[in-house]
Design a protein around this nucleic acid. Structure first.
Length: 584
RNA sequence: GCUGCCGUAGCUCAGUCGGUAGAGCACGUCCUUGGUAAGGACGAGGUCGUGGGUUCGAUUCCCACCAGCAGCUCCA
């Protein structure tokens, strides 16, 4: 079945659900009932507070409608007549939609099914009974027309399939996906924790999670060196004047931790971004065009007071560390620098085996006044960005207006979590505004011996270590490749007789730079293998009397199973090679 | 922040129609000295998220708060 016919089916299912709700409850006003990725929803306004307890009742009514099997019938009605009709029916939301959203239409389409009549573009299936399986999934609040200032509606989510078997398989996949959730695996494998007593959205990296993070830091650091960056280190707070100059403060007052007020009247802000500090590093001394591009990098810790309802495991937190850098360059250098940033982001994603990502170019909304800087610079920046992205042939490139940072357009790299939700990881942002005379008034002396304004590029290939690791946990289902694995090889003893031999192996592995431990428990080897596999250790080295005598280990890999007896030197050589190549 | 749901041992969860709680795993001790996914016995672990209220008595009922989950809104 094509996605198109599945969408038609689900769209009809949404209408059947709405019809059931109207039959069961008083004073139901309908809003919109579109299809979404794995199903559909319908927004309602009604007195009764819907909850999951109502689902059986609604689903029973839906089944009745399916049995009745009345056909969908399309009607074309002049808009004015439709307004009168819907006003009579008390469907105020639909009337508003006709008056505003569909104001330019001559006629609009309705669908009738028995006594149920609804404004709808269609198309629909012919007969309800074509729906093989329909299930209500959840109830949630949603704002009318997606605006938090409007009234809140009740949204019922559901899904539908042609066959019951397809629904079962979808529900099974959902259950499986939940097992991959980084919050579940992070707890199970002791990677990170978030404690109420520390605070919402504040991540405590546990020893095993810290190893994964450190490996990423090493990887990024090596790239920074290779690509001519200079590492700096700056404090996590700054005088509020700094953010007033940068323009950040008035714009984002609500999503910051409140300022720290000093007795002398000074105010300090827990920094929500690193840019102003790096700008100050740039301003530390006069700069010449010969110094550019100046690339300043820092694993910078920032804090943002995100709304409580937005917090989510490691992927949306209140304190996080960006693999940040700011590049100060001449206008002529922008294209090359921007390209290099995209290139580094692609390298990161490729190294970690992310193939399914999309790139979103976020431009400004020309009607909005929330952006700073002159339109000329914006046009220049957006054109430069778009050109480079097109030249580099990035996957599923999408341009969205209105998503830009307030100081400039950006290219974001977006991946999905195990439940299909999109998250922005890497980002490259062009900025003609912070360096401008209206802001920090950055300068460099050109070959003409006159001051010029540099261009700034903000970029973070990972985005933040927190979010990236959260997504990474789900990407690998916590079975990290050897170079990232918290424990790379575990020595398992068959009996106590070989304890000394096992300990000597552990030390030699450590000397070779491998992360290892020794399972000396008085358990049977089967149990130790089982635990080692459950802990997702990439290599298990079994040693018994036989191996102790021949000075070998019986190696077992997570991927390939038993590999036979090998001398330790051979094991070290293999693992070191695998770590160096960052094999997936 | 909003709507709905939810919170019992380190973890996953059961239970109490109101009389202060239980399982499996993990943990500890002992027995077993074993060869590629769970050997056995015993033991320790909980102010049932927090604060109020109703009650002779609340983990259980009610209210508020806090935290978590799904969605919405937001995301420098």
């Amino acid at each position: 079945m094509s996605q198109e016919s599945l969408d038609t089916l689900r769209h009809s299912a949404a209408h059947i659900m709405a019809r059931a709700v109207i039959r069961l409850f008083e004073g139901v006003e309908l809003a919109f009932g579109p299809t979404v990725e794995n199903g559909f929803y319908y927004d309602f306004s009604l007195e009764h507070k819907l909850s999951e307890d109502d689902f059986p009742k609604i689903e029973a009514e839906i089944q009745k409608i399916l049995q009745e099997n009345e056909p969908f019938e399309r009607l074309e009605i002049p808009r004015e007549e439709a307004i009168a009709m819907l006003t009579d029916m008390g469907q105020k939301l639909k009337v508003e939609h006709l008056r505003e959203g569909l104001a330019s239409e001559e006629t609009v389409s309705f669908y009738r099914q028995g006594e149920f009549l609804d404004l709808c573009r269609g198309p629909h299936i012919n007969r309800p009974r074509e729906i093989g399986a329909i299930k209500l999934m959840s109830v949630a609040g949603a704002y009318w027309k997606g605006d938090a200032n409007n009234q809140q509606l009740q949204r019922l989510y559901g899904t539908a399939f042609f066959k019951k078997k397809e629904l079962d398989s979808y529900l099974f996949q959902l259950e499986e996906a939940k097992k991959r959730d980084h919050r579940v695996l992070g707890k199970k494998h002791e990677l990170f924790t978030i404690e109420q007593k520390v605070g919402q959205g504040l991540v405590l990296w546990l020893p095993k999670g810290t190893i994964v993070r450190q490996q990423l830091e090493k990887f990024i650091s090596a790239e920074l060196t290779r690509r001519g960056y200079q590492i700096v280190n700056t404090p996590v707070i700054g005088n509020i004047e700094l953010y007033k100059t940068s323009g950040h403060y008035p714009y984002y007052a609500e999503s910051q931790f409140p300022p720290i007020k000093m007795p002398d009247g000074d105010e300090f802000l827990l920094r929500p971004m690193n840019c102003p500090h790096h700008v100050m590093v740039y301003m530390n001394k006069p700069r010449s065009y010969r110094d550019l591009p100046l690339r300043l990098a820092e694993f910078g810790c920032v804090h943002r007071f995100e709304q409580s309802g937005e917090l989510n495991g490691m992927t949306r937190v209140r304190g996080f560390t960006q693999d940040d850098a700011h590049i100060f360059c001449t206008p002529e250098q922008v294209k090359d620098e921007f390209r290099a940033c995209i290139d580094m982001t692609l390298l990161v994603l490729k190294t970690l085996g992310f193939e399914d990502f999309q790139v979103r170019l976020s431009f400004r909304d020309w009607d909005s006044d929330k952006y700073v800087g002159n339109p000329e610079n914006w046009k220049k920046a957006q054109a430069a960005l778009e050109n480079v992205c097109k030249e580099m042939d990035l996957p599923s490139l999408e341009i969205v207006e209105g998503e830009a940072a307030f100081y400039g357009p950006k290219a974001d790299f977006i991946v999905r979590d195990c439940l299909g939700r999109k998250w922005q990881l890497g980002t490259v942002q062009l900025d003609y505004n912070l360096p401008s005379p209206e802001r920090f008034n950055l300068e460099y002396i050109g070959p003409d011996n006159k001051p010029h304004t540099p261009v700034m590029i903000h970029r973070a290939p990972l985005g933040s270590f927190e979010r990236f690791c959260g997504i990474l946990i789900e990407h690998f289902a916590a079975a990290f490749p050897l170079w990232l694995a918290p424990e790379q090889i575990r020595v398992l003893t068959v009996s106590e007789k070989v304890e000394d031999y096992a300990k000597s192996l552990e030390q030699r592995l450590r000397d070779a730079g491998l992360r290892t431990s020794c399972d000396l428990r008085p358990e049977k080897i089967g149990a130790k293998i089982r635990d080692g596999r459950n802990d997702l250790v990439p290599y298990l080295a079994v040693v018994g009397v036989k191996e102790a005598e021949s000075r070998t280990v019986a190696l077992r890999s997570r991927k390939d199973g038993e590999l036979g007896e090998l001398p330790l030197e051979e094991v070290i050589r293999r693992l070191t090679e695998e770590v160096t190549t960052k094999a997936l």
